[in-house]
Computed example of a mutant assay.
Amino acid sequence: MDVSPGMIALARRRIAALPDADSRVRFTIADVRSDPLPGTGYDLLVTNFVLDCFTPAELAGVIDRLTAVATPSARWVVGDFGVPAGRWRPAGLITLAGMYAFFRIVTGISASSLVNPSPLLTARGWVATGEATWLAGFLCSRLWIAAPESGRAPST
């Protein structure tokens, strides 16, 4: 799901050669904040460079909406920007500020700064189980699964 028809077209081209891609992948042009989500029962959510586009209030709503359509055993891959560590922190902060200014003008995103989704995911019963970072933490990918005590975990 993406709000951009161009991004959907690009994704369709990229998976075209995969066996049964047409029957296994569903594309929807929609705004995750407000449009009806296409069904329920998702066992994998992937939000690469999505969650960083929202204000804190919008992000909480997006995470609630996506959590509601996920299965109890779903996995969620979150790939986004982060604030670099150590000596790269100042350069990272300047780069992020420039990126947010650019994307607010060009695409109209509502966010004006990076919001860490981790506390919101944790509060909704997700647990980070893996992480990979690049460029001193400027790029980060995390795998989230349901916490057993959250009631989201599958029964055994």
Rank of each mutant, 00 (worst) to 15 (best):
A11G: 13
A97Q: 13
V106R: 08
P38I: 04
W76H: 07
L120T: 13
C53I: 04
T95V: 04
I63C: 11
R33A: 08
F27M: 08
L121E: 12
W88M: 14
S118G: 03
S150W: 00
E58R: 02
E58T: 03
A17L: 12
V46N: 10
L51W: 02
A70P: 09
L59H: 05
F49S: 08
W126D: 09
L18V: 04
T55K: 02
G86S: 12
P36H: 01
V46C: 09
I145V: 15
G151Y: 03
P84Q: 07
T122N: 13
R26Q: 14
S150E: 06
D43L: 00
R12F: 03
V83C: 01
G151M: 06
S113D: 10
T67C: 10
V77H: 00
T67M: 11
T47D: 02
L66I: 03
A91C: 08
L114F: 10
A30F: 00
G125M: 08
F81M: 15
A101G: 13
A85V: 12
S118V: 13
A9L: 10
R65C: 10
S141R: 11
T47E: 06
G137D: 10
T40P: 00
T107K: 09
G6M: 04
R12C: 11
G151Q: 06
P72M: 00
F102S: 15
G130R: 03
L44N: 11
T122W: 02
F49I: 08
T55W: 03
A153W: 09
D35Q: 05
L96C: 12
G98E: 12
L18K: 07
T71L: 13
T47L: 01
G151D: 12
I105M: 11
M1R: 01
D31C: 04
V127E: 15
P5E: 09
A128H: 00
P154N: 03
L114N: 03
E58Q: 15
S150H: 09
T40S: 15
V127P: 00
I94T: 14
D35R: 00
M99E: 12
